[in-house]
Amino acid sequence: MTFFETFFAMGGYAEFVWPAYALTAVVMIGLLVVSMSALRSDRKHLENLQRHVRPQRGQISDQLASNQETPNGDSGTEDVAVGEPATGDDGKA
């Protein structure tokens, strides 16, 4: 057997070792992609919103948003009808 054949055979445990590594890679890369795309789409969404809100309002809301108890969390769906369509709900939802 060549080096690579031996390597991929994993001493007869290939069917267990490779799925373990593949699954780990898929889950970790998946987490990264989901988190990045959620951040990107929310960033875009926020820019759009800020363009539509009068600047004065925008400043106020920025202050409010940086406050701890500001009543918001997820890009909730109940406000969708009035604002921009809520893109990128929580990636895991």
Binding site: L49, S75, G83
Partner: peptide, 21 residues
């Protein structure tokens, strides 16, 4: 870090949407 930044932005979006509404 990425996910916390995203949560911060999501909260801002919500506040803005409430202000608009």
């Amino acid at each position: 870090i990425i996910r916390i930044q995203r949560e911060i932005i999501a909260r801002k979006i919500r506040t803005l949407q409430m202000l608009q509404a």
